[in-house]
């Protein structure tokens, strides 16, 4: 079940729009926003060290922009790969970009940590499709996972 969604985008307007869409779809969903990939990575690092902390919640789904200063979406994946998350439950990371570039799409496809690629703007329909896909994947994951 998806409860926490994290948005990473340097464009505050996009963050606002996406947050509103998520709210519109389901006001029960919690969103956390980062305006840079670097701060998002730092957050995930801290989170991983304090896995049982109540004040920190691990995101179930991340919407990641590609073009960002300092660290772009692809660099974010590389950073993420550098530390092994102790929590085995995977985070679904979707690229959310305005780019239609084939190069970006192919790069996203070949990225093992990337779950999908969607084009901006995020709409309620798109969000709905993703959340449905993600919950099916999670079910299968749980099913396979021996406890």
């Amino acid at each position: 079940m998806i409860n926490n969604i994290t948005l990473i985008d340097d464009n505050k307007i996009d963050l606002f729009v996406n947050q509103k869409i998520i709210e519109k779809y389901d006001s029960g969903l919690k969103t956390r926003m980062f305006t840079s990939a670097v701060s998002a990575i730092n957050y995930l690092k801290i989170l991983d060290l304090n896995i049982n902390s109540d004040s920190l919640t691990k995101p179930d789904l991340i919407f990641l922009d590609i073009n960002m200063p300092q660290m772009d979406g692809f660099q974010f994946f590389n950073e993420l790969r550098k530390f092994d998350l102790k929590d085995p439950k995977p985070i679904h990371i979707y690229m959310l970009s305005s780019s239609l570039s084939l190069e970006d799409i192919n790069k996203a496809k070949s990225e093992s940590l990337c779950s999908g690629y969607i084009t901006k703007p995020l709409t309620v329909e798109k969000l709905k499709t993703i959340l449905e896909t993600v919950s099916i994947e999670d079910k299968n994951y749980n099913y396979k996972k021996p406890i």
């Binding site: 307007i13 996406n18 869409i21 305005s98 901006k120 703007p121």
Partner: peptide
């Protein structure tokens, strides 16, 4: 394109 999509979102 980025600002256009932002506007579209808005």
């Amino acid at each position: 394109k980025a600002p256009l999509t932002s506007a579209e979102g808005l």
